[in-house]
Amino acid sequence: MKVGEPERLIIDGKRLDGRAFDELRPIKIEAGVLKRADGSAYLEWGGNKVMAACYGPREVHPRHLARPDSAILRCIYNMAAFSVSDRKRPGPDRRSVEISKVTREALEHVVFTHLFPRTAIDVFIEILQANAGTRCSGITAASVALADAGIPMADLVPACAAGKVGGEIVLDLNDVEDNYGEADLPVAITPKKGEVTLLQMDGNFTREEFEKAFKLAIKGCKKVHKIQKEALRKKYGGT
């Protein structure tokens, strides 16, 4: 047993924060919040606070990274030192390097990179306050920032996690559930076609539990997608 572990994570069919099993934490997204970036978004998701910015298409530095037939997409996920209880040493650690990679792979599929050969599209994600689910928050915010920058895309990419907590399959784990739960499954999709662009998992699922959690996560992604669209409508109008 870990230090600080609560005795139970599910009490009378409810989660410790009072949510139902399939309930998301409150999400708020605002598009176009930074002056200098070509596109940006600010997102609050439960206790997460995330800023995402997009620059480009722009010249590639270093130049040898440029591709003759398409743009390169680069993503950097970074956690502020003060975003977590124990100060995080600034700079990239192994976890952020991996998250940056899967974030890029989650987003690149929808970006029409072939329209901008020899350029770079840079996405920066800053986690200002973390409360579990930061990679999903980052992808969700980055996707809105790309749209805000006017980058042509086939779809938005919403992300959401499901997991197993106290033996129950639940949506969108908070930090206590993430720390002491049994499994975590972050997923990102392209809502129009229903393709999965991000899929990671750790913990323990039976085959049946996995299927249930996976479908729940996809449902969550679809709810997140609605909030992404609302944020863009709020800034740009339209239906």
Partner: peptide, 24 residues
Amino acid sequence: GDICAMQKGGVGTFTEKEILEVID
């Protein structure tokens, strides 16, 4: 036979059905 870790890689995508199929 439980699943204890997963990782998708690459820029392409999988459908829901493909993922369940790969697991089996």
